[in-house]
């Protein structure tokens, strides 16, 4: 009898502790938007992790905050403004295009242009230099021309005889 009671208690205890899993996402639509937005935001505690991926306490709080904003019907821009008003542009992985971020956005293009400019200049200089020292570009004197013509005509007969030798 006692073992039976113990068994029953053990069974009951199991039921008491087994609780239903808390749903991760209350509303899948909100959760998807949360992931989309927070994937583009920096977690200020870990800095190299996005707000969506971070397990920092602050990231949890900010995700909760963004969830409330989404539920309230704020659009993505309004949510980003909410966060930059408090944490600054640093929270955005993709900073906005404005006066203070001009160099940040255009810097790579400027460097590319600068590099292309230098390359172009170098290539032009080199082609000019090589033209100046090009041996084919030298004017031949009268005597040289005569020698050349002689050499060329001398060259021809052995070529034809060579052909004849083969056949």
């Amino acid at each position: 009898m006692r073992t039976l009671i113990l068994l029953l208690v053990a069974l009951l205890a199991g039921q008491v502790f087994a609780r239903e899993a808390v749903p991760v996402a209350e509303d899948p639509v909100i959760e998807q938007r949360l992931i989309d937005i927070s994937g583009e935001l920096r977690c200020l505690v870990c800095q190299n992790e996005s707000l969506a991926a971070s397990h920092a306490e602050l990231a949890l709080d900010l995700r909760r905050e963004i969830r409330t904003l989404i539920a309230r019907g704020d659009n993505d821009d309004a949510i980003r403004t909410f966060l930059t008003d408090r944490y600054g542009d640093f929270i955005l992985y993709r900073p906005q295009f404005k006066r203070t971020t001009l160099l940040l956005w255009l810097g790579p293009a400027l460097l590319l242009l600068l590099g292309l400019g230098l390359l172009f200049r170098q290539l032009r200089r080199r082609s000019r230099e090589s033209k100046a020292s090009d041996p084919t570009d030298v004017e031949l004197s009268h005597d040289e021309r005569a020698t050349l013509a002689k050499l060329l005509t001398e060259e021809a007969p052995p070529a034809s005889s060579g052909k004849g030798g083969k056949s």
């Binding site: 200020l44 505690v45 306490e57 602050l58 709080d61 900010l62 905050e65 408090r86 944490y87 600054g88």
Partner: peptide
């Protein structure tokens, strides 16, 4: 307690 005001002040550390 829930850190709501911390967020308003941009507290991160």
């Amino acid at each position: 307690v829930d850190g709501r005001i911390g967020i308003e002040y941009g507290v991160y550390g």
